Amino acid sequence: MVTLAEVARHAGVSASTVSYVLSGKRTISSQTRERVERSIRELGYHPNAGARALASSKSDIIALMMPLRTDTFVPVMMEIAIAVATTAREHRHDVLLLTGQEGPEAVRRVVGSGLADAMIMMDVELDDARLPLVRETPRPAVLIGLPADARHLTCVDLDFAATGRLCVEHLAELGHRDIAVVGEAAAVYERHTGFAERTMDGIRQRAGEMGVRILHRPCEGSYESMAGTLARIFDERPATTGLIVQNESAIGPLLSLLRAQGRAVPEDISVVAICPEAVAVQQSVALTAVSIPAEEMGRRAVELVMAKVKQAGGTRGPATAVAAETRIELLPPQLTLRSSTGLAPTHASAHAPSPSTPAR
């Protein structure tokens, strides 16, 4: 393994000069810096991360808090994580992935141990228990998600409320007046996960404005649970002609069940999904869908948190804390029309409520 002393000899400078080039603690002439950096490249020198962190109060690591739960659609989470990791490398940072469901304790561990220069948090709940600590610590942090109270926080997310409104608008404009929502697992709503709650807020708001009846039923996502959920929907609302699905795991079973029941898509029932584009286009019927911009969210979260690190001078600790600002970036939803939606069937018109019927 190449040592710092060997780099110094190769570049014809002192070991302290190499150290200053690496840490940036002192100004080094551009000619000397270039010579040292050339020697580092040619020799393949990699400074010890632990020693570098102690010397510079920097770790060049971003902690990504991504709790993995049984009710989480992991491919979307991993797509975000990959985008975070690749964008972090562009900023010469690595990513420490924390997948446990530790809540505030994970924040305390990162802050107290100095594991990372900054934090990115996922799976944000409306009243997330981690947020008081995030507001108190000088460690730069960005949320991929939007809590109920976003004061003094930086957040990036898809605008899920607008997503819900857009899905209702599309179906209502096609004449659908009874729409059922196949939602995430019940536990997602029980812990008030932001994206799911905000989608339903948007759905209910727009449905009320457009005289559409809404029936929301959570679903675990398995074939058996989807069968029970679908039976319940048609038992409670026989006139249902439109479905909004916000549960990637349930999409395949749903389409199979509709086909087995002889319900043609979209002739008998229209389906709109909120899911990754790859999921939408790989089904037996290509789905009209609002895609989840996972890559864009991950990339933007890193850009925002690195701007905070730079603003703080790249170091950590109370002396360099930056006054907390509120910054919310909501990505606008885009609905892509495919084969799964069409005009409401005429046989359902007799069951359709009047425009004054309130949404439920």
Rank of each mutant, 00 (worst) to 15 (best):
V156K: 01
R151F: 08
I179T: 02
D117G: 07
R109M: 15
G164K: 01
R151H: 13
G114F: 05
T137Y: 12
E105Y: 11
V134C: 06
H152Q: 15
I144W: 04
A161K: 09
R165F: 05
P140T: 09
L171H: 01
V111I: 12
P147Y: 01
E173F: 02
G164W: 00
G112L: 05
R151Q: 15
E190R: 11
H152M: 14
G183S: 09
L131H: 07
A187W: 03
M119E: 08
D117Y: 05
R191V: 06
D157A: 12
I179H: 00
V142H: 03
A148G: 13
V181T: 05
D128F: 00
A129S: 10
D127Q: 11
H176N: 04
D149A: 10
A161F: 06
G183A: 10
T137C: 13
M119G: 04
P147M: 02
M119P: 02
Y189W: 11
F160C: 13
C155P: 00
T163S: 12
S113F: 05
E169Q: 14
V124M: 02
L133R: 07
G145A: 11
P140M: 08
R135Y: 09
G175R: 03
D157I: 06
G112C: 05
A129P: 08
L143H: 07
I144H: 04
I179M: 03
H170A: 04
E173G: 08
R135T: 10
T137R: 12
G175S: 06
C167T: 11
G145N: 07
P140L: 08
R177P: 04
V142R: 01
D117F: 05
L146G: 01
L115F: 13
D117S: 09
V182A: 03
F160N: 15
E136A: 15
V182F: 01
G114N: 07
A162D: 14
R191F: 03
H170P: 01
L126M: 10
G164P: 02
